[in-house]
Write a protein that binds this DNA or RNA. Structure first.
Lengths: 139, 139
DNA sequence: CTTGTATATTTGTACATACAAATGTTGTAT
DNA sequence: ATACAACATTTGTATGTACAAATATACAAG
């Protein structure tokens, strides 16, 4: 009973995990983990504006205690800078470095290369149908 | 460019992870991790036939080194038995206990309760469309 | 039968993550 | 000014996972 439901959910789960696993592997070749990659993207998205641990937390599902350690790693690699926020000494101002921007460009290329073979498997209408059906399933 | 593709893939990824995260939380209330749950299900599926570490490995994505430790935990909880295979002493024969069957029933109930609200959101045809589109996307 | 090779599992180690508690800072009410 | 709660981040600890190396057994060739 409900065979179709479970088969479909299984497909969603395995596909979702497969994609992130493959991307994780691609990033690992550059010594960057997936959460580190996400933090770098958030920082770049801020366009030079400093971002706090709390800001990053809001955009990620991670616990804040681990954001600290993820940023530690990025600081060690010189991909980001971290300094005390001048207006609120509880906060940390985190910014991406030139080196961070550079590695991010390479990482994006890798991620894009992963998606390349799949990008045209479905046409626009099919993609929208797929997205809508998943959203309806969760509604 | 390719906005539809990336939005759809994002939907698949977040939904897949959301489902496993929610199930992980539900299992945690019984002190069982998701890989442990999968091992228990594989053992039950064997219907009393002993299963080796390698057999489990084939049905899971885990590295075999961790299968050992996952089984360790289940042995400690008395959910499974592990003994040397009599015909090949390199192998371990792993079987589920009565207690293991019992906890698995409770876990299944929890998992089913999670899915309950979503099971009828899509009709049979929509589910099949959804499944096919994901398969086509990966093809 | 012993030597080498493949198989099956386990152990060691480094790293990642969750959760709780601790630290330090800010704002506010008295 | 002082005390106290709220906020922001960090540290401690237990657990989980990946990868490589180690152990132990089986099989096959000479």
């Amino acid at each position: 009973m409900n065979k179709e439901y479970y088969q479909t959910v299984y497909e969603i789960i395995t596909t979702g995990h497969w994609i992130t696993d493959e991307i994780t592997k691609a990033l690992k070749e550059h010594g960057v983990t997936e959460p580190q990659y996400n933090v770098l993207r958030i920082l770049r998205g801020a366009k030079g504006e400093p971002v706090t641990v709390g800001d990053i937390l809001d955009k990620m599902v991670q616990r804040s205690s681990n954001i600290t350690r993820i940023v530690d790693k990025l600081v060690t690699k010189n991909y980001v800078n971290r300094k005390e926020c001048p207006t609120n000494r509880r906060k940390m101002d985190i910014t991406i470095t030139e080196e961070g921007i550079d590695i991010l460009k390479q990482l994006d290329k890798k991620v894009h290369a992963f998606h390349q073979p799949f990008i045209n498997k479905l046409d626009k209408e099919e993609l929208n149908t797929l997205k809508s059906l998943i959203q309806k399933l969760k509604s």
